[in-house]
């Protein structure tokens, strides 16, 4: 405390974890793995009306090697599952996964032969955004939850 008051506002003291978390949470590069209906709401969230850019998550990267957050948007069928797994494996650490919509959380209304019953059976999920499809407000809330999680976690260098 004493040091801080002596230095005034010229220097900010913090922990490495905190500053890295702060930097990481406001520069999310999404990989939108868009398969189905939820993609329409993802579009709506990304466009000017709801403006995902306010959260530093405006720029989608379509190469998994350049992305931090895997947004799994829409139903994952058993045919699609190996592809999802492969995309996830190609992403560099640190990486996060967001399950966008009911189908990715639990299979949603599709309890049948074709659909994966929740993507957490294939890849680890950090944030679940429920809804069929979730409203843009819910999506933004999910992103804020993810940011909180990133801020509070131990930062790997």
């Amino acid at each position: 405390m004493a040091i801080e008051s002596a230095l005034g506002e010229s220097v900010v003291l913090t922990r490495t974890d905190k500053v890295l978390g702060w930097a990481r949470k406001y520069s999310l590069f999404l990989y939108p793995f868009v398969t189905a209906c939820c993609g329409m709401e993802y579009m709506a969230t990304a466009a000017s009306h709801y403006d995902i850019d306010r959260f530093g998550a405006g720029l989608p990267r379509f190469s998994p090697r350049q992305a931090d957050v895997l947004f799994v948007v829409g139903t994952i069928s058993h045919k699609q599952a190996p592809i999802l797994k492969r995309v996830w494996e190609q992403m560099c650490e640190p990486k996060w996964v967001v399950a966008f919509g009911g189908c990715t959380c639990s299979g949603g209304p599709y309890d049948n032969y074709a659909t994966v019953q929740g993507i957490d059976t294939i890849v680890p999920v950090d944030v679940y955004i429920p809804g069929c499809p979730p409203r843009p407000e819910t999506v933004l809330d999910g992103i804020m939850k993810l940011q909180e999680k990133i801020q509070n976690q131990k930062q790997e260098l």
């Binding site: 058993h78 599952a81 797994k85 032969y113 019953q117």
Partner: peptide, 28 residues
């Protein structure tokens, strides 16, 4: 619509609705 590894024909009435045949991951 389905993958080569899939066995059976799902719209036949004797195929169960939840007869999942995952390529990876658990069955349920």
């Amino acid at each position: 619509l389905l993958y080569e590894q899939f066995e059976g024909h799902p719209l036949r009435k004797d195929y169960p609705l939840t007869g999942r045949q995952p390529l990876i991951g658990p069955k349920n």
